[in-house]
């Protein structure tokens, strides 16, 4: 018998701390598999955020730095300027990237930093216990929005891909999900393309992964996938938001 699927060498043997069914584990695997398949593990340097994936430095087998909250794109900028030929990526959640770290991500994209950003959008603060995120849906309950997010009080969910696609320095922007196998395959393809573009020095690439948080959503992992499909995907439509290669060929 031949092995058709086993754990990626891009991951360490450390058991992940994530709650059962958390999509962080799935996305970690996709990034690790892409780095392994592109033969980038020897040189890759990743930057983790503050939030649920704060311990990602223990899970990825490449060199890692842990950034302060929201500053991963700035940290990655410093790393990339020192090692311009090495693949550098940030892995950030919605609170980290779309709230406290908005300035850093926008400006890293605008500089066309040759880095890859993986953005996990699960519409909630996970690590701190279910507070409202910048991507929380209108009406969605959170521990700091007990009656549901009120648009008049705090605005609507931030649409990062739509914003990033308007920035010149961003060469590839795609929103994906891992809610089923076809979408998971597409997500991996998108992450692969983002790293390939980085290695071609094309510019900044941004992959948003619409994700779940079963624990703070108060649902089982399987129910969470269904909730994601019914509630998040209409607000955060999947697809390619910017592909400079395609624009150039048209």
């Amino acid at each position: 018998m031949a092995i058709v699927y086993q754990k990626s060498k891009g991951l360490t043997d450390k058991e992940m701390h994530y709650c059962p069914g958390c999509t962080h584990g799935i996305v970690h695997k996709l990034v690790a598999e892409v780095l392994e398949e592109l033969n980038l593990l020897d040189d890759a340097i990743g930057v983790c955020p503050v939030g649920c994936s704060v311990f990602a430095y223990d899970y990825f087998s490449c060199d890692m730095q842990e950034a302060s909250h929201g500053r991963a794109p700035a940290v990655a900028t410093g790393i990339k300027r020192v090692h311009p030929n090495s693949p550098v990526f940030t892995y950030q959640g919605d609170g980290d990237l779309a709230a406290i770290g908005m300035a850093e991500i926008i400006h890293a994209a605008n500089r066309g930093e040759k880095i890859t950003t993986i953005f996990i959008n699960n519409a909630i603060y996970g690590m701190t216990g279910g507070q409202m995120a910048p991507t929380t849906l209108i009406g969605q309950k959170a521990t700091t929005a007990p009656l549901g997010r009120d648009k008049d009080l705090c605005g609507g969910p931030v649409h990062m891909c739509e914003m990033m696609s308007a920035i010149d320095g961003a060469v590839y922007v795609e929103r994906v999900s891992v809610n089923n196998i076809p979408n998971l395959n597409k997500a991996k393809k998108a992450i692969k393309k983002a790293f390939e573009l980085q290695m071609q020095n094309a510019g900044f690439a941004f992959i948003e992964v619409v994700s779940t948080c079963p624990t703070n959503w108060g649902k089982t992992p399987v129910e969470s996938m269904k909730w994601l499909e019914e509630n998040m995907l209409p607000v955060f439509p999947l697809g390619v938001y910017k592909d400079v290669e395609e624009v150039a060929s048209k």
Binding site: I3, Y5, Q6, K7, S8, L11, E15, M16, Y18, P20, G21, C22, T23, H24, G25, I26, K29, V178, I181, L184, N185
Partner: peptide
Amino acid sequence: KICPDSVIT
């Protein structure tokens, strides 16, 4: 592929 904890071969 979907296993978040990579327990399946």
